[in-house]
Design a protein around this nucleic acid. Structure first.
Lengths: 123, 123
DNA sequence: ATTATTGTATTAAGCTCTTAATACAATAAT
DNA sequence: ATTATTGTATTAAGAGCTTAATACAATAAT
């Protein structure tokens, strides 16, 4: 799963989201060191300024700690990560249900679709 | 459910999406007449050019028919609408599952979460 | 016939995002 | 000590989105 950047919304927000995903999934583990801004920018094929912007936001949120001259590390606060992960999952679920409802699916229909998904996943 | 426009991605794409939702849910029904571009723009608190851009895309996709001087109507092709609706639903489901997976949830965990959702909806 | 309404097109301005090209200070590495 | 690497800041340019202000032709409404 390399960096996947679409042109339909700001790149820096996509970077924030994808880095968060990598933190939640453990690609970047608790307390581990991140590559330098420049390296991460190059990997993502993005300008260093843009990557910097994303990282600054993540630091503001506390998921990342910046060490002025020795790079950045992921927070060691496991609870914070777990909370953020749960929050994102809840948001995903709510957004999905809301959109299905706005599309006109009735409660029962949504339920049936969910059951179909679960059925399909057991195989 | 009035127009809900966030600043985190282009307005015209959000307009497209929300008009599609209204078509799928029947707020704008089969063959019915749409308000004029200017009226819709005003309702959405958006520039007429921006609304025009969204409507042009919907026409390109076939969901809307334009009558040069008497406004626009929703297509009468029920199948087309149904297909587009199904396609959007599938996209929502796939995006949800993919993101949950990228967040690090295992197949079993996702399944458990889905069951929780279903459980919560039966009440 | 006249007027109003329709979609459409154009031009200019302002805004955000992104890139590129630098530069700096602090400190890690040598 | 010297060099390399770190995050950070700045400036300029270009691209896309949005708004505002018009204008036009076709036709519906009066």
């Amino acid at each position: 799963m390399p960096w996947e950047l679409k042109p339909d919304r700001p790149i820096y927000t996509q970077l924030i989201e994808q880095i968060e995903l990598m933190i939640f999934s453990g690609v970047y583990s608790l307390g581990s060191k991140l590559p330098s801004v420049r390296d991460m920018a190059q990997e993502a094929a993005v300008n260093p300024n843009t990557m910097q912007r994303a990282l600054a936001k993540l630091e503001e949120d506390g998921l990342i700690i910046t060490h002025r001259t020795s790079g950045r590390t992921i927070t060691e606060d496991a609870n914070m990560i777990e909370e953020a992960k749960t929050k994102m999952a809840e948001r995903q679920i709510l957004d999905f249900l809301e959109k299905m409802q706005l599309m006109g699916f009735k409660q029962k229909e949504i339920l049936a679709i969910i059951n179909d998904i679960a059925k399909g996943m057991k195989e």
